[in-house]
Amino acid sequence: MYERALTELASKILGEVEGIIGYAPGSLPFHMRPFLCQREEDIACLSFNHFARPNLARYLLTLEMRKKRVAIVVKGCDARTVIVLLKEGQVKRENLYLIGAPCHGMVSVSKLEERFGVLSPPDFVWEADTFTWRGERFAIRDFLEDSCERCAYPNPPWYDALLGEELPKPPVLPGGRDYLGRIKALPLEKRWEFFAQEMEKCIRCYACRNSCPLCYCTECFVDQTRPSWLSQAATRNENLFFHLGRSLHMAGRCTECGACERACPLGIPIGLLPLYVEELIREHFAFEAGMNLDTPAPLLTYRENDPNEFIR
């Protein structure tokens, strides 16, 4: 997808930027990987498709990249993350060139496996909204990653160049498909049961945290020792504390890209917690993270006349 547009644009801007952070085909089928294109001959490797899962904004924060002017390929949610990073002063506008990729959603390999068993790449022919498997046609939207199922912004809200055309705003999904809605619909004790079970599984490998571009603290609160906030033991309660802590640190910042839960090797739907916090932020502050460069983030704003007394 977008290969032509991507290579044309890349040849044009490489030189003007020192590198292009994009995607290249991975070593396994149905996998794309982050790729740093720095030379003419790398350009042909750049590509984009339904498996461009990682949020590349994370790579803007490496020491090496911070010093350079780089271009970066961003989906809707990823672009929003870059905007948050800009607002938080983590990256500089003049060092960035955003290549927007209107996104048809990322396809979940486990959902494919559930339906088709052991996957063989030649069985599949991919198009933007549909694919065929051994000649039979299926809709992409039936195999989307959970976070993509509820995506409201497939188009980057801001970019320097766009690959292809902006997509129409996706239809609001019927409630049953929204996995946060599904959990919220459960009675309280069932909800607890659900989270307790999921938290029991977590081994605190921190793949979720490390895949999130907004978890950029040099020392995460879980690693601090003076004081030490939580035990090293990956018990249900300690894990929950980690994830609740992280979600709160994300409040008003998380762009619902789903990078964290796609990273989890145990398939824990960990994105639910930050997602819920974002719902609360929407409800209470009428704010969504990373939609523009101007509106200040609610939890980073102090106002003399704040209606909440505890703030003043």
Binding site: P34, F35, I203, C205, Y206, A207, Q232, A233, A263, P265
Partner: peptide, 25 residues
């Protein structure tokens, strides 16, 4: 090393990785 995000997923799920920490609670 460029694109590795330095998480613990691979080493934690690797059947051979044995590194551990001793800490107090």
């Amino acid at each position: 090393a460029w694109h590795c995000v330095n998480c613990g997923a691979c080493t934690y799920l690797c059947p051979t990785c044995y590194c551990f920490d001793l800490s107090v609670d």
